[in-house]
Amino acid sequence: MSLFSVLSIGASGMAAQRIRAEILTQNLANAETTRTPDGGPYRRQDVIFESTPAESPFSSVFNAQMEAAGGVAVSQVVTDSGAPEMRYLPGHPDANSEGYVAFPKINPAEDMVDLMGAARNYQANVAAIGAVKDMIERSMDLFR
């Protein structure tokens, strides 16, 4: 139960939110992508978070005393398997025999809102690290 292990909890939150922001940005960037290495249009991806035991760089013996969830990690990146959006574009090179092109089913507004959520959450984790850093500095002042 050391203050230093709290820093790694905050860092795990920052890392998880950054991965989420990366995935969301990837969705936005590929909102109109009709070709992928796997064939077909790009498919929207999203992350699933899970709480993990706090990992401390130091001995975790003391941490084990207090049974509690610690940090967070991305447990899975899920791909949307829903049907793509069909748009009628007969001149498009990827159009099928009826003239429809499969586009990714991505709502940019949804991804933008999620992206803002990720950014706010990242800030909250930074604030937590800042507060704990202040506490560590205060403890070290006791030696002076």
Partner: peptide, 27 residues
């Protein structure tokens, strides 16, 4: 008092880190 504050701060940090984890309960 300071020990307890440290323990509590740890739980607060872990609650913030898990603010988007499905099914997580505030501790």
């Amino acid at each position: 008092y300071m020990d307890l504050l440290t323990a509590r701060q740890k739980l607060v940090a872990s609650n913030i880190a898990n603010a988007d984890t499905p099914g997580y309960h505030t501790q």
